[in-house]
Amino acid sequence: MTPSVRRIAAALCALGAALTACGTTGTTRPAPAGSPGSARPSATRPPVLAPGPGGLTPVFEHGPRTLGKTVAFTFDADMTADQGPRAASGEHFDNPGLIAALRTLKVPATVFMTGRWADQYPDQARSLGRDPQFEVANHSWSHYAFTAGCYGLPTVTADRMRTDVQRAYTSLRKAGVPNPMPYFRFPGGCYDQQALRALSGLGVTAVQWDVVSGDAFATDADAVARQVLDGVKPGSVVVMHCTRSAAPTTERVVRAVVPELRSRGYRFVKVSELIGRANAPAPTGHRPPSHAKT
């Protein structure tokens, strides 16, 4: 080895040591297998809420009320484990017109997708997952309820809850969603302490809402639009549905509500931005807003 080569090698070694000391080598602690972070480098992982006491899964309902007029539209892509025959006979659990409207209106959104929906509509799941306008999150695989007495949904047993969430992430990735978000929405929005404990350690934030659109099974788009407009506040999370058979008016609602909210000064964001804002330090002399619970 010539002197010049030795000097270059020594310089490279010194640089490597310095990077290691500064923690910039890119080495990350691996996430649990099947968790939303297992395929995503730590530097690009989206914001989540800190676990509650004893590692309990945290719950997010809305963003800060004092950091500007932002609102997150969320859409549940529902399909239960036993609805395959209905889809095969022609029932539509997707809503391409709604997604096209969101793209035309340039409205970012978060889609909470069941694994069964992704299995049925992999091309649409892939399209949403690869479009930076959207983020795809977990809505369970089966869309079975995590508590009893939840809008007539079948229930998943406590020992299967964790597996159901992990199976949904597997379906999302299989469909071509490269980076499903570490956010989970309970089917029907129903949960209790047992459900929160069952999902502890998965690294997910449970995402609820503070504005119920009422689009599920609705036939009056104007009434749904009024309900959304009356309910939205700065930092709101609005729940709607991406299912033609169960929410046939949603596209019309979106087309009516979006320009009106923009005229009121609202900016549309994804859930990840609201959670990131919730994690930001509160201004000096101000108490942090109440936006989450465990």
Rank of each mutant, 00 (worst) to 15 (best):
M1R: 14
V5G: 12
I8F: 08
A9C: 11
A10E: 03
L12N: 06
A14V: 13
L15H: 00
A18T: 13
T25A: 11
T27A: 14
P30K: 09
A33I: 12
P36I: 11
A39W: 02
S42T: 08
A43C: 10
R45N: 10
R45E: 08
P53C: 04
T57H: 00
T57R: 00
E61R: 10
T66K: 08
A72C: 14
T74C: 06
T74N: 05
A81Y: 05
A81S: 10
R86P: 05
S89D: 13
E91R: 12
F93V: 01
N95L: 04
G97K: 02
I99T: 15
A101P: 05
R103H: 04
T104S: 14
L105P: 14
L105S: 15
P108L: 07
A109L: 09
A109P: 06
T110N: 04
A118K: 02
L128V: 15
R130K: 14
Q133P: 11
E135T: 09
H139Q: 07
S140M: 08
H143R: 08
H143A: 12
F146G: 13
F146R: 08
F146W: 11
G149H: 06
G152L: 10
A158Q: 10
T163L: 12
Q166I: 15
Q166N: 14
Q166Y: 12
R167C: 07
L172E: 07
G176H: 07
N179I: 08
Y183K: 05
F186C: 15
Q194R: 08
A195P: 08
V204G: 12
V204T: 10
A206D: 02
V207R: 01
V212M: 10
V212E: 03
D215M: 12
D215W: 04
A218V: 14
A221Y: 05
D222S: 05
A225Q: 01
Q227I: 11
Q227A: 13
S236M: 06
V238D: 00
H241T: 04
C242L: 07
R244M: 04
R244T: 10
A246K: 06
A247V: 04
T249S: 13
T249V: 15
E251R: 15
V257I: 13
V258G: 00
S263Y: 01
G265K: 09
V269S: 10
V269C: 10
V271C: 08
A280R: 13
A282F: 05
P283W: 07
P283F: 09
H286C: 13
S290T: 05
K293L: 09
K293V: 11
